[in-house]
């Protein structure tokens, strides 16, 4: 009988294979871009995506998305709304499950706790229950107040980026555990965490209180794996690269996809591995993104 504890480290190409057409995926922040690029490279289709900002926009631009659990598609670089989300939503090419941060977390928590719903007060009086009929206003049975019933939001796979992980799925963040990442982990059937560094199990045991995720299903080694977004404790976001994407997406939203398709080919479809991608970005560019 095999008595050896199973290690959970796989590479980003194998991890990309976990994401299948039609799945619901939750994407954390710091953004697990090594995995997002594999999803685009494999041309996965019809995903329901819990995500915000330019990584969401990139997945929409690449044709991977059917539905968005959406609370914020804000851009930057002169685009208050990310361009391809805006275009696809206005044309009805994607379905939008309209929510907000508190409701999203309540839905993820309901999934984690196997509840049919959790109540939420934020959004009472707003249009959210009208434009998202899954959110139901109800009278609470204790005090009779109007609240919103938020149904479970249950990802098939959560993909996250963190500072450190060991071979057994113990994960540690630096500078705060992401934004909604811990809720995504608790709600999802399976979680893949890409880490800046793989650390020895003894280092985890030296301070178990620092472990933020206790049992990720797979760990992917991915230094600079959040590029072009920030990775807390390691580097800031690459504004030049993100602006190049934002401008290409804006042109595509106006009808000219040439720059956008070039961007997707160059940075998402041609590099077969994360290492190939990092070589394409270049070591000087990457080292120029230091935090302080």
């Amino acid at each position: 009988m095999n008595t050896r504890r199973r290690e959970r480290i796989i590479d980003e190409v194998a991890a990309g294979g976990w994401i299948e057409n039609g799945m619901t995926i939750a994407i954390g922040q710091p953004t697990p871009m090594a995995l997002v690029r594999q999803i685009i490279r494999r041309r996965v289709k019809d995903l329901t995506v819990v995500d915000a900002g330019f990584s969401l926009d990139l997945l929409i631009a690449a044709g991977c998305v059917r539905k968005v659990v959406s609370y914020y598609a804000g851009g930057g670089f002169g685009y208050p709304v990310t361009p391809m989300f805006r275009r696809a939503a206005e044309r009805g090419e994607i379905e939008v499950w309209e929510c907000e941060e508190g409701i999203l977390c309540a839905g993820l928590q309901a999934a984690a706790q196997a509840l049919p719903f959790l109540p939420w007060r934020g959004a009472v009086g707003t249009s959210l229950p009208e434009i998202n009929p899954d959110l139901k206003a109800f009278a609470d049975p204790i005090r009779g107040e109007t609240l919103i019933a938020v149904p479970p939001i249950k990802p098939d796979v959560a993909i996250l980026h963190a500072a450190h992980a060991d071979a057994y799925g113990n994960v540690r963040h630096l500078g705060g555990p992401g934004w909604i990442d811990l809720f995504m982990y608790r709600a999802a059937d399976r979680t893949i965490v890409q880490a800046e560094q793989i650390v020895p199990n003894e280092e985890i045991r030296a301070n178990p209180w620092a472990t933020t995720i206790a049992a990720a299903d797979a760990i992917v080694r991915a230094p600079f794996g959040a590029h072009p977004f920030y990775s807390r404790g390691f580097h800031v976001q690459d504004n030049e690269h993100l602006k190049a994407y934002a401008d290409a997406a804006q042109s595509a939203a106006g009808g000219d996809r040439k720059a956008l398709d070039g961007f997707l080919d160059r940075y998402c479809r041609e590099p077969a591995t994360h290492a190939d991608y990092l070589e394409r970005i270049g070591i000087r560019r990457l080292l120029g993104l230091h935090e302080y």
């Binding site: 941060e101 409701i103 934020g122």
Partner: peptide, 20 residues
């Protein structure tokens, strides 16, 4: 709502923040 003239960024956390 299915064919907005202008699609905004979304509510972020403002529904809950403004409630409390």
């Amino acid at each position: 709502y299915r064919k907005l003239r202008f699609r905004g960024p979304g509510s972020v956390g403002t529904p809950t923040l403004s409630t409390h």
